[in-house]
Simulated assay, not measured.
Amino acid sequence: MIQEYEPEATRRDAGDAESSRASRGWWDRNADEYQSEHGTFLGDDRFVWGPEGLDEAEARLLGPAESLRGADVLEIGAGAAQCSRWLAAQGARPVAMDLSHRQLQHALRIGGGFPLVEADAGALPFADGSFDLACAAYGAVPFVSDPVKVFREVRRVLRPGGRWVFSVTHPIRWAFPDEPGPEGLSVAASYFDRTPYVEQDERGRAVYVEHHRTIGDRVRDVVAGGFRLVDLVEPEWPAWNSQEWGGWSPLRGNLIPGTAIFVCVRD
Rank of each mutant, 00 (worst) to 15 (best):
E210V: 09
V157C: 09
R24A: 14
E153S: 14
G63K: 14
P142M: 11
E4I: 10
G162T: 09
T214H: 08
P196F: 08
R228P: 00
A88S: 14
D217A: 05
E8T: 14
P142N: 08
L232E: 07
S186E: 15
A14D: 09
A71E: 12
L87G: 08
F262P: 01
S36C: 04
L124A: 10
E179R: 15
E118A: 14
R11A: 05
A9N: 03
L68R: 13
Q3N: 06
P7F: 05
L99E: 02
R159M: 13
G247T: 01
G113S: 15
G226L: 05
A123H: 13
E244P: 00
A140H: 05
D28Q: 03
P196M: 09
R46L: 02
R156C: 10
E56F: 00
R109N: 06
A14R: 10
D231V: 00
V207F: 10
R46T: 04
A134G: 09
P147S: 12
F151D: 06
D128A: 15
L124G: 12
G113H: 13
K149E: 11
D178Y: 15
A107K: 13
G112K: 12
I110E: 14
V73Y: 12
R266D: 13
L229N: 03
D128W: 10
V168E: 10
P171S: 10
A57M: 05
R213P: 00
R266N: 13
A121V: 11
Q105F: 04
A175Q: 13
T259N: 00
F166G: 12
E236V: 01
A137V: 08
R194S: 08
D221P: 01
R203Q: 15
